[in-house]
C-alpha cells in the first residue's frame, strides 16, 4: 500500500500559478509512487478497494477489526455518511451545472468512504453497512457536529468542505500507515480523492473571497458559521489514545499543526482571518449530537425502516 508524500504543499501560495486554476493539481500530492498516475476521480475497479471487497473479506473472516478499530471505523464512516447525505442535496440545486457534477462527485466519494468504513466496522458483530446506516438510532451514531451542519448557502457548504477536506487529508494520509491493513487500505484510496476535494474547496474559497463584495461577505459568514465546530475534530479521547499506542491511528490533536498551517496558507491568500469564535463542546463521538442529526436520519432511514428486513 503506497503512502502519499508527506509534504503537502499543493495549496501553498508558491504553487499558486500552477495550483488553484488547475483541477488536476490535487492528485499530484501522491507523486513518486506506483499509484501516482491513478486519477482521483476515475479509479478503475481493477485496483481500487471497493466497499463490496471489504464486506466480502469481513464475511470470509479474512478481515476482522479489533473492538477499537471498529469504533474508529464507525466514527469515520458516520462522518462521511452524514456529509454525503448533506452534499447529495445539492445535486440539481447547485449554482452551475459544473457544480452539480463536482459536489455530486464529492458526495459520491464520501459515500464510498462511508460504505467502506461501515462495512469494516460491522465486521465486529456481523452487521452490514445498511444495518449500521439505517437501523441505528441517533445516539448510536458517532459523527461530529461539523459533518452534521446544514448546507446553508453555497459559501457555508464550501467553508464546511474546506475544513473537512483539509482535516480528512491529514487524517487519511497518516491512517494509510496504520497497522490495521484494512483501515490503511481504505485510507490510501480515500486520501487521493480527498486531495481533490481540498483543491476544489480551496479554489472556491479564493474565488468567493476575491470575487465580489457580496461573495466575500458570504464567505466570511460561512467560515463564522462553521468554525465553532473545528475544535472537536482534533480532540483526543481514551479510544484515540489506545489506537495511537497500538499504531492503528494517530491522535487527532497531532493533525492540528498541519491543518492550521495549510488552511492558514489558503486563508492568507484569500485575505481572510481565522474566525475568532468560541468552540462548541460537541460530543458526537459519545453519541451527543447536534439538533440537526435527527432530521438527517429521519429522512435517510424512513424507507428502509418501513420495510425492515427487505432487500433492495
Amino acid at each position: 500500500m503506497s503512502t502519499p508524500e508527506t509534504t503537502t504543499d499543493t495549496a501553498a501560495p508558491a504553487e499558486e500559478a500552477a495550483g488553484h486554476g488547475d483541477l488536476t493539481v490535487g492528485v499530484q500530492g501522491a507523486s513518486g509512487t506506483g499509484e501516482a498516475t491513478a486519477s482521483a476521480t476515475r479509479i478503475t475497479p481493477g485496483n481500487a478497494l471497493r466497499p463490496e471487497d471489504i464486506a466480502l473479506a469481513v464475511s470470509r473472516g479474512t478481515a476482522k477489526p479489533s473492538e477499537d478499530a471498529a469504533e474508529l471505523a464507525l466514527r469515520l464512516g458516520d462522518d462521511a455518511l452524514i456529509l454525503a447525505q448533506r452534499l447529495g442535496h445539492w445535486i440539481s440545486r447547485a449554482p452551475e451545472l459544473e457544480e452539480d457534477i463536482a459536489l455530486g462527485n464529492i458526495a459520491l466519494d464520501q459515500l464510498g468512504h462511508a460504505r467502506s468504513f461501515l462495512s469494516y466496522a460491522g465486521g465486529l458483530d456481523g452487521r452490514s453497512e445498511d444495518d449500521l446506516a439505517y437501523f441505528r438510532r441517533e445516539h448510536e451514531f458517532r459523527s461530529v457536529s461539523l459533518f452534521e451542519q446544514p448546507n446553508g448557502d453555497f459559501a457555508v457548504t464550501i467553508a464546511r468542505q474546506f475544513v473537512v477536506s483539509y482535516y480528512q487529508f491529514e487524517l487519511y494520509r497518516r491512517l494509510a500507515d496504520s497497522t490495521d491493513a484494512t483501515l490503511a487500505g481504505i485510507a490510501a484510496k480515500a486520501v487521493k480523492e480527498v486531495d481533490y476535494h481540498r483543491d476544489h474547496s480551496a479554489q472556491w474559497v479564493l474565488r468567493l473571497a476575491h470575487g465580489t463584495d457580496e461573495s466575500r461577505a458570504r464567505m466570511i459568514h460561512g467560515f463564522q458559521v462553521i468554525w465553532p465546530y473545528v475544535e472537536e475534530l482534533f480532540r483526543d479521547d481514551e479510544l484515540t489514545g489506545r489506537l495511537s499506542a497500538a499504531g492503528v491511528a494517530v491522535q487527532p490533536s497531532s493533525l492540528r499543526a498541519d491543518f492550521d498551517r495549510l488552511t492558514g496558507e489558503v486563508l492568507a491568500e484569500a485575505e481572510l482571518e481565522v474566525p475568532q469564535v468560541q468552540p462548541a463542546p460537541g460530543g458526537g463521538r459519545r453519541g451527543l449530537h447536534s439538533e440537526h442529526l435527527g432530521y438527517v436520519l429521519a429522512e435517510m432511514q424512513v424507507l428502509a425502516r418501513e420495510f425492515p428486513g427487505a432487500s433492495w
Binding site: E96, L208, G211, T212, E214
Partner: peptide, 11 residues
C-alpha cells in the same frame, strides 16, 4: 440562488 456565485467566479 446561484447568481451571486456565478458573478463571483466571473469577477
Amino acid at each position: 440562488n446561484g447568481a451571486w456565485v456565478r458573478e463571483a467566479a466571473a469577477a
